[in-house]
Design a binder for these strands. Structure first.
Lengths: 244, 244
DNA sequence: GAGTGGTCTAGACCACAGC
DNA sequence: CTGTGGTCTAGACCACTCA
């Protein structure tokens, strides 16, 4: 199968045209996360450009984390990686900064009439119910965070069902069980004081400082599927970075 | 001037050897921020590799933001950009997420006998004094943050002098007045409760939630020049990012 | 062994900056 | 005009994966 690249390049370098081509194939659903894309040589032939140009295009998409490569195997379409979340748990004394695994327990799940703000963010009508999910995260039996999340219920029908087990990695379930690709998320980190419910969950004093993370999760076509607020014990979470 | 690259490459690709070479020249002080580095063609000749290999090495260093390029001019060594700090002020209702300018007033500056932790971090002897600096940041007359910083005093002699005006962009003064290049910084963000001094400065209740940013600033040769703790009103600071 | 990505080279031509 | 980085090509050889 050969393709004809757009003739009017508008001064856009060839490798960017190739990038756009691959991006379009992914957006159109012809390539989904986990798929192997055609090899560099095949793409070069299909698109009638040199392999070096294809390599540069793929380099850039790998840099954007849209793709990843395995030498000897091929180039794959990436899935979203929530290990890049701002909310990473760091154990004290663990200088390596490796995130620790958090075990999550579901403490509440039901369809609710959400408040105006939530409805507006999820872009659902005034009457529509949304799925509410509450989970507490533990590290070695100790509660360190709570998350309160709201989902567009029509996209995850059945998630409110008690008999459906919710794994620690909820997004994997969303993708596999409901066929909803999780494409992108936006996060805002700030600080706050623990409300009474949160204080009770985390076993801290009401008013104690907590890190607050607001996350909006998107599926294809820039459609929001979830808005979530996570609150974590300030003494157990921190975010580290380097400036150069 | 020609160089001989290390013969034992240890399976390290050539372009990484070139990267290391450039990094060394910068660490050694032969190249300082703002400097033009030799052109790709010159480097290729000096190091006896192809220009494509030099280009790839520079590509990677540009990606790391250690260098930046200007077509037609050349390749320069970057200066540190504190606009990348985690501590960025975001105005409410300003969806653009543009950082707002903060005006800072110096509220304290003197040589002090620092605590053990600070001395250890700055790597100074038990008896050495360090320079203590306290500044309050305002947005439109309203105090929104306080910073408490400790400096290796021998590197910034005279900074304690009241007659020396401290600009909002302190690091510019450090570089220009004291000739100490600011190369890199590490930041850790977490939440905390306002201590009494901070509460007073920020005009909030003691115990109210604040964002806490710890910063360690480095000069050449991985030498620490400053450790700083900034505390900001939780309702006036947030950090936003995107996950893909 | 065939196919994949990874490295490295050599060279052509273009776009931009500055004299 | 000269020198810089930016794009694009063609091809050689290597390292890894899998049948």
């Amino acid at each position: 199968m050969n393709f004809v690249l757009p003739k009017a390049r508008g001064n856009k370098p060839l490798y960017q045209v190739v990038e756009d081509h691959i991006r379009e194939r992914i957006d159109a659903g012809a390539l989904v996360p986990g798929d192997l894309i055609p090899s560099e040589a095949q793409l070069a032939k299909q698109l009638d450009v040199s392999q070096g140009t294809v390599k540069k295009a793929i380099d850039n998409l790998v840099w954007e984390r849209l793709l990843f490569r395995h030498q000897g195997k091929g180039t794959y379409v990436s899935a979203i990686d929530f290990n890049n979340s701002l909310f990473r748990f760091t154990t004290y004394g663990d200088a390596s900064g490796q995130p620790t695994r958090i075990h999550k327990e579901t403490t509440d799940r039901r369809l609710v009439d959400a408040g105006k703000d939530i409805r507006k963010q999820l872009e659902v009508s005034d009457k529509a119910q949304v799925l509410y999910l509450e989970r507490v995260g533990y590290v070695e039996e100790e509660p360190v965070m709570v998350e309160y999340s709201h989902w567009r219920s029509e996209l995850v029908q059945g998630l409110e069902n008690e008999s459906l087990h919710i794994p620690d990695l909820l997004y994997a379930l969303i993708v596999e069980e409901f066929g909803v690709p999780v494409v992108r998320a936006e996060e805002t980190l700030t600080a706050g004081a623990a409300d009474t419910a949160t204080a009770q969950h985390l076993n801290i004093e009401p008013g104690a400082p907590v890190l607050v993370l607001n996350r909006t999760t998107y599926t294809r076509g820039n459609r929001i599927i979830e808005v979530r607020t996570s609150k974590g014990r300030a003494d157990r979470f921190s975010y580290k970075t380097e400036i150069r």
